[in-house]
Amino acid sequence: MTLRAGNRPNGWLGVGLDVEQVSGLGRFDEASVLRAGRRWLRPAERAWCAAQPSFREAMIVALSCKEAVYKSLPSARPAHEIALTMHGSAAAGWARSRAFAPLRIAVRWRTSKDRIVALAVTANGLEARRILGLLLRHYSALDPDREQSPGAWSRSRTRGLGGGDGDQRH
C-alpha cells in the first residue's frame, strides 16, 4: 500500500506505508536470510537485528521500514542506500535517516501477532517527525491491532518512543 503526497511549494512531503507478514521470511533457509541481510541492510541495521530475539522478524521490520521510506521519497532508491538508525524493539519502535539531506525521514513501526506496519514521512527540515506524529495520532487505521484495540499507536506514543513490548501498554 502506498500513500504519497506530492510536491509542495516549499519542498517535498512524502508519506509511505508498508505492511508485511511477520512470517514473511519463514520459508527461507538461514543462508538465504543472512545473504539478504548482507545485501540490503547496513551494518548498523544488521547489528540492531542481531540484538533482537528473532533476527528474521527484526529483518522484516527493517526491510518494511525501508520499503515505507522508499515509497515516501521523491525518487526511487534501492533498499541498501536507505540508511536507517533503528530504535526500539521489533514489536514497536522508530527510525530516522538523514541519508538524503536536506530531506529528513521519520519512521514508526508496530508489530501485531502476524503483521508489521511501518509508516514513513519524508519532508524538508524538522517537519517529518511532526507530521508523522500527527498521522499516528489521528489515523488509527494504521494500527495493525486496530480490530482488537483501536488507537494503540496513540497509546504507544504517550508512553514515549522506543516501544518495549505490548505488555507495557497502559
Binding site: D18, L25, A36, R39, W40, L63, E67
Partner: peptide, 13 residues
Amino acid sequence: TSLNHLMLISQLE
C-alpha cells in the same frame, strides 16, 4: 511483494 523482490534479487545474485 516488495519483500519477496528483495529476496529474489539477492538469491539471483
